[in-house]
Design a protein around this nucleic acid. Structure first.
Lengths: 126, 126
DNA sequence: CGTCATTCAATGACAAGGAATATGATGTGG
DNA sequence: CCACATCATATTCCTTGTCATTGAATGACG
């Protein structure tokens, strides 16, 4: 019945929640306003930009983000519709896909990443 | 162009995201399974239980959670439909409401809180 | 090979949240 | 008192996420 211990845990958890939402919210709004792209879209874009070589992504993406497989699929839909990314079929396993940034995607990512990092720095302190 | 610094920030952020989602997901699934209540519902319940005296809640709740005002309103709807909480009109300002736990609400909260704290302890380490 | 289990991704149905707005109640200046 | 700004909450509409399922491709094994 360590109620004082429990209160500490709860406080710690609320503080995590607040800073998570504050940061995510700030980034999301900024990206939305300046680049017309949501946080999740940016994060996928960022992951694709990062692994600018290895093939058959989609699956791999799912492993590097807390998003669900179906959420990833839909985010990619939007990115594709926005002309930022393209789905390429994968020769050696035709179930898989791999993703590529379009020129527009590369350009947008470059700019958005600057903003993203800046907001992270600002919000994660240090 | 502190790209190595940037990578650190991004890694830090991903790690926060992962632990946030891992913890929130674990708690949410457990509460859902054992008490048929979501994480947000529990958190409101928890806040109401905490301030078991001061009146005209609703507004105050909004200030203690990252949820939107409309989200809070809907969570309270669900809690009320589930018979865990009741909205009481506030005599001195009829715009406001204050919330009370029902007996069922108090009972469920007591049990769920144990589970909640345990999962926090488990997930927030230490 | 032929089956059967497994894997990758997309989809549809549905729940939940956010923004903007509606609705009532209060306060306030003239 | 009356108009008008403001406040507390509810509600509508839209977007996004999840779960479960599907479809297609692949692998495993007798």
């Amino acid at each position: 019945m360590a109620t004082t211990r429990d209160r500490q845990l709860v406080e710690q958890w609320r503080s995590i929640q607040n800073s998570y939402f504050r940061t995510a919210g700030a980034i999301d709004r900024a990206l939305e306003a300046k680049f017309d792209i949501g946080l999740n879209e940016f994060e996928i874009l960022d992951l694709v930009a990062e692994s600018e070589e290895s093939a058959c992504r989609m699956k791999a993406l799912g492993e590097r983000t807390p998003m669900t497989q179906s959420a990833v699929s839909k985010v990619v839909d939007r990115l594709e519709k926005a002309g930022l990314v393209s789905r390429e079929t994968c020769a050696d396993d035709r179930r898989s896909l791999f993703l590529e940034l379009t020129e527009a995607g590369r350009a947008l990512h470059a700019n958005a990443a600057v903003e993203h990092r800046a907001l992270l720095k600002e919000n994660l302190g240090s």
